[in-house]
Nucleic acid binder design. Structure first.
Length: 422
RNA sequence: GUGAGCGUAGCUCAGCUGGUAGAGCACUCGGUUGUGGUCCGAGCGGUCGCGGGUUCAAAUCCCGUCGUUCACCCCA
């Protein structure tokens, strides 16, 4: 049987890699403006890192992790998300006492064993951002603003920023109990799923998509009405800061994040053009995770953004300059020309030009067709006549004009006068 | 883990109620001596996912299996 790729993974082929490189370049342009530097971390970790940070009873840890024993018998897990690794690295490398808030971003593959569907893969790429060391709402707002700016720079339209507050470790348990008792009053009106899970995770009833639960949820108490005073104030400041710089958002009291470590501000960026998995970015504040992993008390804020989903949303122009084409395609006729083409290609590449050529001895028509398919800006024609006269023919493939020039003149003829934009 | 749809040339698909496969695009080569993109012509290309069953005969019906897509769940 032919070996094929693992279920739920994707090959990113050379003809679309420019899209990814473009996104990466925009990240490297925007994030440093806010003081974020890249960090590169292992894609596998000690399994306990994830069970302790993400939460033992979350779906991710219960049934979605790629966990295996390595040859030494240690339990290893392919990272299902990036924050845990960043926090581990922060503690392990004692990156305490930065001059200001410690700000980092990362990009790379994450792994979750789920049934693949539109916008959901088993290996997928995220770009994530973490700011460590400030409890204040300014960080929350700066980062949410940065995401929106990043997405705007990439040309996304029709995206929404939704925010909520998940409260604190103090008020949330109280609210959960209140919610449970309220839900019990309507227990017969819930969908089967929620009937089964409301005891364990009552917050999930709030954003259940089933109509019957939606009706019940309308009448249930909202967490943002039951925040402890400090969290309520924090949330009010977040909203007022967002307002002050005119970042559009909406409060979604039903927004619940799936990872246990979040508290206070939680947010999502969604798009209606993604299919059923409509979140492109999700994140929030996690003030106690560092402590839970045995580091010093360090309040943090971060998010993760799905790159596959992002790629599918960006309105790429297929004829964009981002796609790389050769500066020149060399057409050669005859053995002598073939060896001359070899030398000239070498010289032009050494001067920084990208050169494509015919490697066989195809007919001229065939070679010209290939030059066209490569969308090269110029075609350099070398035949017996050109070798005899020492003047090569350089053809501009847009205008169709061609002129004779010596090998010395080639570089200046081909080089573009315009300056790089990036 | 649950449910539904789909698996025919490199790609997108047609092939009604069974009679040993087609189109468009792509690719290759041509349209007279060394010039692309448009146009015209020719050509290459398929164990019809795999296995079994029914039948004189199956891409077409039945069963199984694998893959895939979408949805639930959950999330990026």
């Amino acid at each position: 049987m032919k070996i094929q790729r693992i279920r739920g993974v994707k090959d990113i082929l050379p003809n679309e890699i420019w899209k990814w490189q473009y996104i990466e370049s925009v990240a490297h342009k925007i994030f440093p403006r806010y003081g974020f530097n890249e960090i590169r971390l292992p894609i596998f970790e000690d399994t306990r890192l994830f069970s302790r940070s993400i939460g033992d009873t979350t779906d991710i840890v219960e049934k979605e992790m790629y966990t295996f024993k390595d040859r030494g018998g240690d339990s290893i897990t392919l990272r299902p998300e990036g924050t845990a690794s960043v926090v581990r690295a922060y503690i392990e490398n004692k990156m305490y006492n930065p001059p200001s808030v410690l700000k980092m971003f990362y990009m790379g593959p994450m792994f979750r064993y789920e049934r693949p569907q539109a916008g959901r893969l088993r290996q997928f790429n995220q770009v994530g951002v973490e700011a460590m060391g400030s409890p204040g709402p300014i960080v929350d707002v700066e980062i949410m603003t940065m995401v929106m700016e990043f997405l705007k720079e990439l040309g996304l339209a029709d995206i929404k920023l939704e925010i909520n507050s998940l409260g604190s470790q103090e008020c949330r348990p109280q609210y959960r109990e209140l919610l449970k008792t309220e839900i019990e009053k309507h227990i017969d009106q819930l969908c089967d799923n929620c009937t089964a899970r409301y005891q364990r995770n009552p917050l999930r009833v709030l954003d259940c998509k089933a109509k019957e639960c939606g009706n019940v949820a309308e009448g249930l108490p909202k967490l943002i009405d039951h925040l402890d005073p400090a969290s309520a104030e924090h949330f009010a400041e977040v909203r007022s800061l967002l307002d002050s710089i005119g970042t559009p958002y909406s409060v979604n009291p039903k927004l619940v994040r799936g990872l246990d470590y979040y508290n206070r501000t939680a947010f999502e960026v969604t798009s209606q053009n993604l299919g059923s998995q409509n979140a492109i970015c999700g994140g929030g504040r996690y003030d106690t995770l560092v402590e839970e992993l045995e580091g010093p008390s360090t309040p943090c804020f971060g998010f993760a953004l799905g790159l596959e989903r992002l790629v599918s949303l960006i309105p790429f122009n297929e004829s964009s300059d981002l796609q790389k084409h050769p500066d020149v395609y060399i057409v050669c006729l005859g053995e002598e020309a073939k060896s001359m083409a070899f030398e000239i290609a070498h010289q032009l590449r050494a001067k920084g030009l990208s050169v494509e050529r015919d490697y066989e001895m195809a007919s001229m028509k065939s070679q010209m067709r290939k030059a066209n398919k490569f969308q090269s800006r110029f075609t350099l024609i070398i035949g017996e006549n050109e070798i005899r006269s020492g003047k090569l023919i350089l053809k501009n493939m847009d205008s169709g004009e061609q002129k004779e020039c010596t090998t010395e003149e080639l570089v200046s003829e081909i080089s573009e006068p315009e300056v790089d934009t990036q």
